[in-house]
Amino acid sequence: MADEVPFDMAACLARVRQGDDGASRDLVEELWPLVIKIIRSHLPRRMGEEDLAQEIFLKVFSRMDQYREREGKPFPHWVSRVAVTTCLDALRAEKRRPEWRFADLGGEEAHWLEYMTAAQSDESPTDGLAARELMTKLLQTLSPDDRLVINLLDVEQRSVQEIADLTGWGASKVKVKAFRARKKLRNAAEQMNAEGKL
């Protein structure tokens, strides 16, 4: 099997700036997995992955002159920032947030919710898929900014500094937002669980 040649980002960018269409296509294909991964973690409900990816790539090409290599940030990092802010704008544009009820939860999701909100620590559930589904539903009850910060911090395990770089917020703003968002998350979980007991 032949060894894969590593993608030379700097050379590709230089060719893109000279107007080379082939290099531009290569760049899109190289960055596609990164962009799709970000979209999947923050996707607004009524928007298709492909539409959002198209919007992100068009922004990347139209703002290419704003990227400065000498600032030391790799190009994929700059693209991640464009992708995260585009997702945040799309989330903010959503008119309504979903209202999940206890009755909407599957059996294992309800088990996770009861475990999370119980005062006593029972044996923890183990169904990862159900945990993920419940987390998605709880996160959807938060505002776009809160949802983004919890997703990046707790779900993707990014550092505060990384989130500050991605969003353009200061580190202290990220910490304050995360603290408040977790509180709201807890309230949402407790409210949902209380509904189930009525």
Partner: peptide, 12 residues
């Protein structure tokens, strides 16, 4: 418990 859930979800 929230962190525990995120840990379990990440294994999927």
């Amino acid at each position: 418990k929230w962190h525990e859930a995120t840990e379990v979800a990440r294994q999927v």
